[in-house]
Design a protein around this nucleic acid. Sequence first.
RNA 1: GGCGACAUGGCCGAGUGGCUAGGCAGAGGUCUGCAAAACCUUCUACGGCGGUUCGAAUCCGCCUGUCGCCUCCA
Length: 496
Amino acid sequence: MSSSALHVYNTLSRKKELFEPLHAPHVGMYVCGPTVYGNAHLGHAKSYISFDIVRRYLRYLGYKVRYVQNITDVGHLVGDGDEGEDKISKIARIEQLDPMEIAETYTYTYFRDMDALSVQRPDISPRATGHIPEQIAMIQNLIDKGHAYACNGNVYFDVLSAPKYGQLSGRNIEDATSGTRVETASDKRNPADFALWKKADDQHLMKWLSPWGVGYPGWHIECSAMSIKYLGAHFDIHGGGLENQFPHHECEIAQSECSTGESFAKYWLHNNMVTLDGQKMGKSLGNAISLEEFFKGSHPLLKRSWNPQVIRFFLLQSHYRSTTDFSEKALEAAETGFQSLRTTLQSILAYTQQQHNDQTEGETHEALPALQAAFESAMNDDFNTAQAIAALFDHTKKIKRNIADGLPPSDLHTLQNWLNIALTEILGLEYSEPNETDSSFNDNISEYLLHLLIDLRTKARMERNFELSDIIRNRLKELDIELEDSKEGTRYTLPK
RNA sequence: GGCGACAUGGCCGAGUGGCUAGGCAGAGGUCUGCAAAACCUUCUACGGCGGUUCGAAUCCGCCUGUCGCCUCCA
């Protein structure tokens, strides 16, 4: 489907729907953020880049987006069922740190890695621990309305009281309980009931006082409390990873709608997984390569380091609702393709700048409308970045060819402006070579010496002393410095 | 066991009832002292079996395979 208006795939209806904000031009968007107990990995990159694109494209379309993404610094249980230990507490215990130190450390590295990937920061990044009163209030409200019950210091949500429970994930309550592989906690009325508040014992590191005793909030309640606080009871978009569809998002809908009496998010968007050797890449599976390891090339499965921009481009070349199977070979293909796209764009840019005083006479063909239509039509079809990038390749190559043939389009400047917006503002990709921002080559003497060698080699070539010129090029190649001769002179690329 | 996805050429990966996806790799060529880059040309496809249709890789059914969720997870 391609269309002149944005359509998004809504998990609630399992269909692509026309996107109509509740209160245009404002769009409220909530995305489940990370649990900060470890470094972010490639799976996080796929998820947050996907929703970064959603946000960027909505802004391009003129919407005023408020993007809220939580930081989960409490509440997730580890191991089997509800009897486990908080993940952050567990690591804190092992590393002899306060839980908040763990959360702080990984919140920092999370944003550092996302910044590197050009993921724009959320407008609001609420912490779960900073919203305990809101969560308690919501739980109390659910008890008052008969949707939850307290028992031995725990509070559970009564799923039978929520008629729509199971709608999002397409399962009924029997399905949700009958095949469960986990022993269910004994004080629940129904095995499918989920915890809103958990009693904490003396060993527990993170705990708060509540009407039901000392404890800590269940996992699902934070997202409901914080999304409603910052976006209202009924808002436009809720996003997250596919694996959170059940139980997390299902529970969010149940508790939110029972609490407010309004319908919760209008559109539910889910991104698919990144796989490694065909298996989901996940922290708990131990097969995750962290983003830091990608950037530094410091994981045994990696042959080399990878520029964040290349990783972003690689992920954008597949659709967010498809799984992305990772391999270094695929990354390499993405890198080469990305560089060639940038070369094409830069040559159009260079031409535009050198032509800025010229009047193109007799030329009436415009390049932008067709390109823009193809690009927007792809993006309007549920953010199909793969197809949008294909349109970019396709059209810019043609434009470049026309310029080379002496038939530049008449709208070069508007074209250039739009290309800039499409690449940097919508896709979040940079024009410049990754090397140019590499700080490893900032030594003035090194740079001077390199230019000296290049000048000497040029002189040798002029004198047809190719033996010497090849020695210089080959010896530099040993340092991963590559020289390329062109009509405009010798270019060099520095080690990655 | 229940629920849900997916299966595209050497690789990655869009899409679609009849019309080129795109990228990478490969082949040939132009250019170049050479190399690289760039440019031009070019090859390979829709898991299997049935059905619907004038026509299906695209719709339907069955089969096979892979994956996800049902337990924290982007």
